[in-house]
């Protein structure tokens, strides 16, 4: 049995989701874990993948068409690469969720989304109903397992000796019907929401985009990433990539501070694995207090300035 993992990157750096997928693969008991890097000018990326602990080999597919992560372009290459592997994993990020189902359909195989527990090489768990239920799955051992890995469930592997890098060239015609136009990314220098140890999130209770600065100020003081509820994103207080929850990011920081967030089930799904949850909300009956390790009932516009002062 061998597992292939498709690396996730932004063209410059591998992101930690890849190291988390390797961690999940390490629990399968497979003979080899290979990582494929599909990129344009990807030598440095391949080198980053090669030092991930437990990786046996890195396959580099360097090709101009791979400059941007377009599912229609990547999927046929991945399906070809996956030949001979018993497992194919991608992180359950917007990248993996976009690409892997396309690969699965090309291979005529089912796919597991958000794999959260490895109980055996063909025996897994995953959440359904926004995390309100967990299902245990037994997959047919004679066919490859394709899964996206719920990143919050696995700690990223460390680094070690470099594994060999093999450059592959595939003779495949790639479609031209899908074209990258632009990426509007927030180029802030705050820690990345998905890998940060501390996160400060704001909800509708902030009341305006201007007031949302308070969330950012507290985050900066704590060297934390900034998150938001859907209501805060919908209202335009924060950009979409900061949304935490069922349809946003699933995160597992050591410290999560929720400011003016009620704690709807779809939001809580995103923070179940956080170490310590702190809630600041003026409504003592807000559901967020049912999961918060530390709750403080009160007006955030009084509490947060005090926190900022005392943290100095």
């Amino acid at each position: 049995m061998r597992c292939l993992i498709i690396a996730e990157h932004d063209g410059q750096n591998l992101n930690t989701a890849t190291a988390r997928a390797v961690a999940a693969a390490s629990q399968l008991g497979v003979e080899a874990i290979d990582v494929a890097v599909l990129a344009h000018g990807g030598q440095a990326l391949a080198e980053q993948a090669a030092i991930l602990e437990g990786v046996s080999q890195v396959l580099l597919l360097d090709r101009e068409e791979n400059a941007h992560p377009l599912a229609a372009v990547l999927a046929p290459q991945i399906a070809a690469l996956a030949e001979g592997y018993s497992h194919l994993f991608m992180p359950s990020t917007t990248f993996g969720k976009d690409v892997l189902p396309r690969v699965a359909a090309l291979m005529g195989l089912p796919q597991i989304s958000d794999l959260m527990t490895v109980k055996g090489p063909h025996h897994f768990e995953r959440p359904v109903y926004a995390g309100n239920a967990i299902i245990e799955l037994q997959c047919p051992p004679e066919q490859p397992v394709l899964a996206t890995v719920r990143t919050a469930s696995f700690k990223p592997v460390g680094t070690g000796d470099a594994a060999p890098i093999e450059t592959r060239a595939l003779e495949i015609d790639l479609p031209g019907h899908t074209r990258f136009v632009a990426l509007e990314a927030d180029a802030g220098d705050r820690p990345d929401l998905q890998s940060a140890e501390r996160v400060v999130s704001g909800g509708r209770g902030l009341g305006s985009e201007e007031n949302f600065r308070l969330v950012e100020q507290l985050a900066d003081k704590l060297h934390a990433a900034v998150g938001a509820s859907r209501a805060a994103v919908d209202a335009g207080y924060a950009p979409n990539d900061l949304q935490v929850g069922q349809t946003g990011k699933i995160i597992a920081p050591e410290l999560y501070i929720a400011l003016g967030i009620s704690g709807a089930i779809q939001h809580l799904t995103g923070i179940k694995d956080a170490g310590t949850i702190v809630a600041i909300n003026k409504d003592p009956d807000a559901p967020i207090f049912e999961v918060a390790d530390l709750g403080l009932v009160g007006d955030l516009f009084e509490i947060v300035p005090q926190l900022l002062e005392k943290l100095d």
Binding site: G108, L109, P110, I112, F124, P127, G131, N132, A133, I134, I135, E136, L137, Q138, C139, P140, Q143, K272, I277, P284, F289, E290, V291, A292, D293, L294, G295, L296, V297, I303, Q306, L307, K310
Partner: peptide
């Protein structure tokens, strides 16, 4: 198509509610 079988459903591990504090300190 061939599919994985659901062998069991379970509830997620509940998070224990902690306690409320009174002040910022």
């Amino acid at each position: 198509p061939p599919a994985c079988q659901i062998v069991r459903w379970r509830a997620p591990e509940p998070r224990q509610a902690g306690h409320k504090v009174e002040t910022v300190d």
